[in-house]
Simulated assay, not measured.
Amino acid sequence: MLKIKEKTSTVVFKESLKLFKLSTRRIIFLIVIGILFYPFLKYLAFGNLSAVVVTSKLALNLNNILIPTFAVIITGYAIFQALASGPTLIRMISVNHGKDLNKFAVYNLYFFGLSIIYLILLIINFVILLCVDMVDPNWSLKLFSNSTNEHLICILITVYLLTVINFVIELKSFIWNLLQIFLTNGASAATEYLVEQKKTGK
Rank of each mutant, 00 (worst) to 15 (best):
N138G: 11
S115T: 15
A84S: 15
S85L: 13
V32D: 00
D133T: 13
T163E: 04
H151T: 13
G47F: 09
V135F: 04
V135K: 04
K199G: 06
M92Q: 01
M92G: 01
L161R: 00
I157K: 00
V53E: 11
L171T: 07
V127E: 13
Q180R: 11
Y77V: 05
V11P: 03
I67K: 13
L36H: 03
I67R: 08
F112I: 04
V127D: 11
V106R: 08
I79T: 07
F13R: 02
N166A: 12
Q81V: 13
I4P: 00
P39A: 07
G113Q: 01
K202Q: 14
N108Y: 08
L141Q: 13
I116E: 03
L17R: 11
L156E: 12
T191W: 08
L141A: 14
S85E: 15
K7C: 08
N177Q: 09
N125P: 11
D136Y: 11
E150F: 05
L66V: 04
T158Q: 03
F126E: 05
S85T: 15
K18Y: 15
L156S: 11
K202A: 06
I155V: 10
F167W: 06
Y38L: 15
E170D: 11
K7N: 15
F13K: 02
T148F: 07
M92F: 12
A82R: 04
P137W: 09
F167R: 01
F111G: 00
Q180L: 09
I157R: 01
T200N: 13
T200I: 12
N108K: 07
F13N: 02
D100Q: 04
K199R: 14
L58G: 09
R26D: 06
I79E: 04
G186L: 05
F46N: 02
I124K: 12
A84P: 00
S188N: 04
F104C: 06
G201H: 01
S173H: 11
